[in-house]
Every structure is written in structure tokens, then in C-alpha cells.
Computed example of a mutant assay.
Amino acid sequence: MLKANTLPDEGVQLPSTPRGARLARRLAVRRMGEWGFPPASDTSCTVALLVAELASNAVRHGRVPGRDFRLRLTAFGAPTRTIRIEVSDAREDRLPVRPQAPSAEDETGRGLLLVELLATRWGVTPRVPVGKTVWAEVAAPSPLAALPPVARGRCR
């Protein structure tokens, strides 16, 4: 059973429900803190938003009854780090498309536009044995763990 405060290096399987998407975001913020990025930092908030959008899309558009989605976060590089977010689902027939600007009347369609704007780069790859992985990368400064926190808040 998954503890709500852990995110293993190999990723974590979460239920394809709104609750699973919320848990994905919380786990990402916790992992960012472990890597030295406080919850209210720009980097942590950006990663949290990207995870929320990709997990929400996996639940909404990639859900296959009885199948979960997987979240994986990795960090690499120095002195500038790259944070890579991977959200995998079991649906291979519904691939994300590059976003177009929605009209003012559209009630949906802004999620991937946010991903396009916030991520350094993003894409989709096939998932073995079935499904797809939507990934996004964020360039991050050196971790802020050594600096005094300016705000003890949460991402809005």
C-alpha cells in the first residue's frame, strides 16, 4: 500500500480518479521539497501545476476502467537541473495534441496550453506494454535548501 508521503524513484501507481490526481500533486510537492525546492518556490509551484495538469488529463482522457496511472519525477544535470515529470496511462489511442488557443467561450482545453507555456519542453512516448507516457521538463536553478525561506506558503 502506498503511503501518502512517499514517491519512489521508479514512480508510483495511482488510481485514475480525481483523488489520485490530487495525490500526485501532493507527492510532487513533497519530492521537490526533498530535492531542496520549498513548496512556495517558483520551481515547486511550476512542477506542481504541470503534475496536476498531466495527472488530470490521464484521469480524464487516458482512463481505462480498472487501470491506474503512473507518476514519475526525476532530476538531472548541474548546475542547472532539469526536472522531468512523466505521467503514464493505459490509453494509447488518445494522444495529446499540440494546443491551440481556446476561444473565450471554451470551457476546457487550457491544460496542455499551460504545459506548453510552463515546460521547457514536453512530449509523448509509447508505454510498454500498453499506453502512453506524457512527459514535461522544467529547467530549475540550484536547489534553494541552503537559502532562508522567504515564504512558508503553498502554491496557489
Results as ranks from 00 to 15, higher is better:
L2S: 15
K3Y: 12
A4K: 04
T6C: 04
L7F: 05
E10W: 04
E10V: 12
G11H: 07
G11T: 06
G11I: 03
Q13C: 05
Q13V: 13
L14P: 00
P15V: 09
P18V: 01
R19L: 14
A21D: 10
R25I: 00
R25V: 10
R26T: 15
L27H: 00
L27S: 01
V29R: 07
V29P: 02
R30N: 13
R30S: 13
R31F: 02
M32R: 03
G33S: 09
E34F: 08
E34M: 12
P38Q: 04
P39A: 14
A40S: 15
A40P: 00
A40E: 11
T43M: 06
S44E: 02
C45K: 04
C45H: 02
A48V: 01
A48W: 02
A48P: 01
V51G: 02
A52C: 00
L54D: 08
L54N: 10
S56N: 13
N57V: 05
N57E: 12
R60C: 08
R60G: 09
H61V: 07
G62W: 04
R63T: 07
R63M: 10
G66T: 04
R67G: 01
R67Q: 15
D68H: 15
D68Y: 12
F69V: 02
F76W: 03
A78S: 15
A78M: 09
R81F: 01
T82L: 14
T82W: 11
I83L: 14
R84H: 04
E86D: 13
S88Q: 09
E92P: 00
R94Q: 09
R98K: 06
P99G: 05
Q100G: 05
A101L: 15
A101F: 12
A101G: 04
P102W: 02
P102M: 03
S103G: 15
A104I: 09
A104D: 08
A104C: 03
D106N: 09
D106Y: 01
E107P: 05
G109I: 05
G109D: 07
R110L: 07
L112C: 03
E116W: 00
E116L: 10
L117E: 13
L118G: 00
L118F: 10
A119F: 13
A119G: 10
W122M: 10
W122K: 09
V124K: 04
V124W: 01
P126V: 10
P129T: 08
V130I: 12
A139P: 00
A139I: 11
A140D: 08
L144Q: 15
A145R: 14
A146D: 13
P149Q: 10
V150C: 02
V150A: 08
V150M: 10
V150T: 11
R152C: 02
R152L: 14
G153M: 05
R156I: 03
